[in-house]
Amino acid sequence: MRELRFDGVSVRFGSRGHRVTAVDGVDLTVPAGSVVGLVGESGSGKSTLARAAVGLVPLSAGRVTLDGAPVPTRGRRPLQMVFQDPYSSLNPRMTIGATIAEAVPRGTDRRAEVARLLALVDLPDRMTRYPAELSGGQRQRVAIARALAGRPEVLIADEITSALDVSIQGAVLNLIRDLQRTLDLTILFISHDLAVVRYVSDTIAVMYRGRIVEHGPADTVLADPQDPYTRELLASTEGRSR
């Protein structure tokens, strides 16, 4: 378990004459062994923050650390990310087993490790299948297994249920909770849906226009939201549940 921390992180795109600030001075801590839910509407900057954490977009300011040290960019990557669309993140020409095996560290019995990972995500006996032969929920489980293949201590899950049917979302959320407990993972769980975030999270951070506008224990944020935007998200969630 390791602590993921964002200190004054900003991300800007464009030229000097026309810059867009996607993330604006974010301070956020994901304590070791916990699940922090980051929630906000599309365009709020939450996915950009996630991509900055794993080095897919450069920082304009601030830093991202694991236990106070910079996130490694070479060798074993203790931070892994699961993306929104499982189909586009999997090679359609590779079997499930080969896809996961690519991420397994050298010196490991890859076949045995792939079998172990597929069992962890409740997909035994799928090693020789191709992505097109699986459902959306199964493909997302494969993407999770591949992220776990590198044995990360921190997992970033970016909108991993938004492309799934509502009937399948619950099973994937239960899987995330089980994996967090079994593997002692630190997880940053990102979603636009407050109902989804509160199901898995110990702490909730609300992001709006590139900034964190509210942050606290999940029960506190949900019972007594302080920011108008959080209250708006909560009202829309309660409206859908009626």
Rank of each mutant, 00 (worst) to 15 (best):
R93S: 12
V104K: 04
S135G: 10
D125M: 07
P105M: 00
R116Y: 13
L117N: 05
P131Y: 08
R110F: 13
N91T: 12
G136T: 06
Y130F: 15
T95W: 03
E133N: 11
L79S: 06
R93E: 05
D125G: 10
E102S: 05
Q84Y: 07
P86E: 04
D122P: 00
Y87P: 06
T99Y: 09
R126N: 07
M81P: 08
P131D: 05
S89H: 07
R111N: 14
V114S: 02
Y130K: 02
M81N: 02
S88Y: 09
Q80T: 12
G107V: 08
Q84H: 10
M127V: 14
N91G: 08
A101R: 12
L120H: 11
I100D: 05
L134W: 07
E113T: 15
V104G: 01
S89G: 09
N91R: 08
I100R: 01
L120S: 11
R106Y: 14
A98S: 15
L117P: 04
A119H: 10
D85C: 08
R126E: 12
R106K: 15
G136S: 06
S89P: 02
Q84R: 04
M127T: 13
P124L: 02
G97C: 13
M94K: 14
Q84D: 09
R110K: 15
S88F: 09
M81V: 13
M127Y: 10
L120A: 13
L123Q: 00
T95Y: 03
L79A: 12
V82Y: 11
R129N: 02
P78W: 02
R116Q: 11
E133V: 03
L117K: 06
D125T: 06
P78H: 00
G107R: 06
A101F: 10
I96D: 05
S135A: 08
A132T: 03
E113Y: 14
I96R: 00
F83N: 05
L123A: 04
S88E: 12
A101W: 03
G136K: 03
M94H: 09
R106E: 15
T108H: 14
D109Y: 14
L90M: 15
R126I: 04
R116T: 14
A132Y: 09
D85F: 04
V121N: 03
A115K: 07
L134D: 07
P131C: 09
D109G: 12
G97S: 13
V82A: 12
A103G: 10
A119L: 03
V114L: 11
L120Q: 11
A103T: 13
S88I: 07
D125S: 14
D109T: 10
T108V: 15
A98P: 12
I100S: 01
P131V: 03
E133A: 15
V82S: 09
I96H: 06
P131G: 06
I96N: 06
D85Y: 04
S89D: 06
R116D: 12
L120P: 01
R116L: 10
T99P: 04
L79I: 15
R129F: 00
Y130H: 08
P105R: 07
Y87G: 11
P86T: 08
R111D: 15
S135M: 10
A112L: 12
M94F: 14
V114K: 01
F83D: 02
D85I: 07
